[in-house]
């Protein structure tokens, strides 16, 4: 955090000849540490993605129903020859193992398949819809973390009444369903006050209400976890030492306790950021925003399996990327983990 930089201390020196003690442990956050950590994470990330691809493929195989019938739609009059032609084009007649290997080979080239319904490459479909959702999810997580940190720093270890108020709003925000919260926000801030647009994805203003809707429940959970972490950290002996140096309560929270509580916050927000993708489905519907959520909804209801599989792969990728980032953040937060 900022504390180390303000003291203008240099990065740890390379291990010198040493005086005998602790040969292995003297290491800061060096490039090698990070590179090793990234390499290890990349290996396991690949394994996770392969697992996700395999699961998606297996699910597709197990589903009843004929893909060709879906492609042709319910009111088709196509002949058996046409059906066979389509089946052959899609490779549906091949043995399952061959289909699986083909599927993996296409994935390696970034080819997620061809949407039955929309007759477009799935990667193009997802690419078009990705940005609005990423914007929404990022905005929501920023809203959540900022609100959580503010409420936790202001209330942790303070007057019981203050804590009670914070706990109350956290409970309310966690237990309110997002669609209901969205409708509520729309009613008050768009229809009554006209502060924000009702629908669409144009401009920053259109992002505020969806981000709040998606972020508020997350802020409630994060705030609770962060406050508990802060209160645990404030009980530690080093806090007494820091106070004995003349630091203020706020200074101690900002410089010492927050970083200790951050591990829990980072873990949870990483996990929650992944789930925001799913949460976006409802919010995008309520606010009539384009995005992955809307696409997924459409694909599932029309049984457009290539698109569904593409979304599954995307969320696997997002989870892997986030958990890698979280693991690296641990190294930044806690030097004790930088031992290998």
């Amino acid at each position: 955090m900022t504390s180390t930089s303000t003291t203008a201390l240099p990065r740890p020196l390379p291990p010198g000849p040493g005086t005998g003690a602790e040969p292995a442990a003297r290491r800061g956050l060096t490039g090698r540490t990070v590179a090793l950590a990234v390499a290890r994470r990349a290996g396991s990330a690949l394994a996770v993605l392969l697992g996700a691809a395999t699961t998606a493929f297996a699910a597709l195989q197990l589903l009843p129903g004929d893909p060709v019938a879906i492609i042709l739609g319910p009111s088709t009059m196509a002949s058996a020859q046409v059906r066979d032609q389509i089946r052959h084009d899609l490779g549906l007649g091949d043995p399952v193992v061959v289909q699986y290997l083909h599927y993996l080979g296409r994935l390696l080239h970034g080819d997620l398949g061809w949407s039955y319904q929309l007759q477009q490459p799935v990667s193009a479909l997802i690419g078009d819809q990705l940005m609005p959702t990423v914007q929404l999810a990022l905005a929501a997580i920023v809203v959540a973390v900022v609100l959580a940190v503010l409420s936790a720093v202001m209330t942790a270890g303070r007057h019981p009444a203050l804590r009670a108020v914070a706990s109350f709003w956290e409970l309310v925000s966690v237990s309110t369903p997002p669609f209901w919260l969205g409708i509520l926000l729309l009613t008050v801030l768009s229809f009554k006050i006209h502060a924000f647009p009702v629908a669409g994805a144009q401009g920053f203003g259109a992002l505020v209400l969806p981000a709040l809707t998606l972020g508020l429940p997350v802020a409630g959970i994060l705030g609770q976890v962060l406050r508990e972490g802060l209160e645990a950290a404030l009980e530690q002996p080093f806090v007494t030492t820091a106070r004995a140096r003349g630091l203020s309560q706020t200074g101690i929270r900002a410089r010492h306790a927050l970083r200790h509580a951050a591990a829990g916050l980072v873990t949870l927000s990483g996990w929650l950021a992944g789930t925001l993708l799913g949460g976006a489905v409802l919010v995008e519907k309520v606010f009539a925003r384009p995005g992955i959520g809307a696409l997924t909804l459409q694909a599932v209801s029309s049984r457009d399996m290539p698109v569904v599989m593409g979304v599954v792969m995307l969320s696997a990728l997002v989870f892997v990327a986030i958990s890698t980032a979280v693991d690296l953040l641990y190294l930044v937060i806690d030097p004790r983990l930088r031992t290998d």
Partner: peptide, 9 residues
């Protein structure tokens, strides 16, 4: 070990 902040140099 516990009286110095373990996360700071």
């Amino acid at each position: 070990l516990v009286s110095l902040d373990p996360l700071r140099t």
